[in-house]
Design a protein around this nucleic acid. Structure first.
Lengths: 343, 343
DNA sequence: CACCGGCACGAGAGCGCTCTCACGAGGGGA
DNA sequence: TCCCCTCGTGAGAGCGCTCTCGTGCCGGTG
């Protein structure tokens, strides 16, 4: 019989406005929470939106606002790291959640090689995203330099290497955490406290070591004797622990700079016949929810709330995008000691 | 008020056309590789694009073509799985790479809970993406049902549960792989071949078991005696191997349905004092590049090329999006045995 | 009573692109 | 010679949204 104009098509703002008996402009005002709308109009539009199941057309909005509604999440990290370390999966998950909470699309960029870097730069320069969250902890990483010449707001996780001038970042108090962990071991009466460190080309690993060092009052020579790099991997942690055991047979406590390495360290201690915590007290770092509670014995660990960190990064970036005043370029989140059975 | 975000005035197609001395329509034709363009016009436009550093405005294009240029990658999987199993990181990486190769944005959706599912459904229904790649292997997963009522092209990895009618999927020949592995063990002269399976609420685990079963000619009772579920986790693999060792002391070979579990099984065998491959031959599954070559001894494994699978999924989905004729709704990729030291 | 400022709202102009359509030039068949 | 295709091209109409302006109405002020 008669033609149905928009029966199958997705409703547009025009349809909503018509149904609500207002103009498109007013409907738009309601959707964008403009204050200059009468309560009646507001209610009518809201009702029409619900009734029609209206969803704003993202492309049309992006076209006029010059905002894509998407941000890039960039990991610059050698490939094995990303796959070994559950920390990364956790970061990705946190980012996915934080961003979908605020209705922003996440575009994941994994940079393993120079070609990846070039591709990422092209993408970021292409105007596909409004901003970026960057994870580039390693010394010598090109990403910060690349990002610097892009007209794109960026928030870093932790301190990248190179000049910090003008950078926005959200870090954890790694040094404070190192102190916390070590002082806890001291308060337990431990006398010979060693440390398995992360790779020292990352500030976070460096800071944790600095925390341990200041708490035990270690000299340069002590550092060489009492610490070993475990590379932030499980196997590395095991190897480093074994090395320390060989070098410092009378050790009675160890601060391990990540839970994953701590899991490896526990393996090494077990194989060496040392009881935890009776013979050797162990404190990890991260309080990773998939690791710390599940080791045997459960791991005492310095908590850094990663999902909170990512949430802060997102909030910070959104504020940057809205050109709101920024309280501080750099945020440092606190770390807390979570006690379990290992120390 | 109206401050331009990146006021360095990105060139538009109009600018390109002006510089090339043609109309916007012709410039657009060149960019979209239309055949109806003279060589001279083509060259002039191409030169202008390069000179101006022109990048098409994605939003404007999306608005008129009604294509977002983005697709969703959805993982429906309990949370620990995603973080334990390097297979997932590998899948995510493969997807990220395959999609950026074809210049499509990837939106990652992780579904762990009913709320996540609702959120994902809303997102997918919201027209933010042109299609979706789905990883939902578990029995009882709601995702396929949700996807079915969405007007969105979807390609699955492996066979989801529930009716397959109308679904597009790219699977591996898991059963064939199981046969391959087991026949290899038989050809080695092994007589007592057991299997550590994956969770049998996944078709892939089921199929691998079926392959083993048909190769050894196992009865129902044999299955109960000679196989054990390792849950696709490393610890699970270790536990399952230990259980089999206790139940079938004279076993001389094992087919383990994933490399991660196989790594655990090797631990169990080592702890039990069995030499690999002398006492017990071990074949894994996945040929995971981060695991199989690095176990001791290196793992003989059935290769399933995950990145190839994802690439096929992407190709298939793009074909769906272009409404090109599809050869087959379901693709089954071959599996190959990769020999190393463990069998 | 005239005036003015504030407020809610509508008209309409784009944002940058694709795609339809119409048009002129050139070539081949009648 | 004329007609009709074909082919390359340009003009222009939107896609669905935001946002600036202008307008009419209200209450408060001089």
């Amino acid at each position: 019989m008669s033609v149905q104009p928009h029966s199958s098509a997705r409703p547009t703002l025009e349809d909503v406005a018509a149904k609500a008996g207002v103009s498109r402009a007013t409907a738009s005002r309601v959707l964008n929470a403009s204050p200059r709308v009468s309560p009646e109009a507001h209610e009518a539009v809201t009702a029409a939106v619900v009734e029609l199941g209206y969803q704003p057309n993202h492309a049309a909005r992006a076209l006029v606002t010059r905002r894509t509604g998407a941000i890039a999440v960039v990991f610059s990290e050698p490939e094995p790291k990303i796959f070994d370390d559950p920390h990364f999966a956790w970061l990705i998950r946190s980012a996915a959640r934080s961003l979908s909470d605020v209705d922003v699309q996440m575009v994941l960029l994994l940079v393993h090689s120079p070609e990846d870097m070039a591709r990422a730069e092209r993408f970021l320069a292409g105007g596909h995203v409004d901003g970026a969250l960057m994870f580039a902890p390693h010394k010598g990483d090109q990403l910060p330099a690349v990002a610097r010449r892009l007209p794109l707001p960026v928030v870093y996780a932790g301190r990248p290497w190179g000049p910090l001038r003008g950078l926005h970042l959200v870090d954890h108090d790694n040094e404070g955490g190192g102190v916390l962990a070590t002082e806890h071991l001291i308060s337990l009466g431990r006398k010979r406290i060693v440390s398995v460190t992360g790779p020292l080309d990352e500030h976070s690993a460096m800071d944790r070591l600095t925390g341990w060092r200041s708490a035990v009052g270690a000299s340069e020579a002590d550092v060489a004797l009492l610490t070993e790099d475990g590379g932030f991997s499980r196997d590395g942690g095991k190897r480093a622990m074994a090395a320390l055991l060989a070098r410092v047979p009378d050790l009675d406590a160890v601060f391990v700079a990540s839970d994953l390495m701590a899991a490896g360290a526990l393996d090494a201690l077990r194989e060496a016949g040392r009881r935890v915590p009776e013979d050797v007290a162990v404190v990890g770092f991260d309080d990773h929810p998939m690791i710390a509670p599940h080791t045997s014995p459960p791991l005492t660990s310095v908590q850094q709330d990663t999902s909170n960190q990512v949430k802060h990064m997102v909030t910070h970036l959104l504020r940057l995008l809205r050109e709101e005043p920024i309280k501080a370029r750099r945020e440092v989140l606190p770390t807390v000691l979570v006690r379990r059975a290992s120390a």
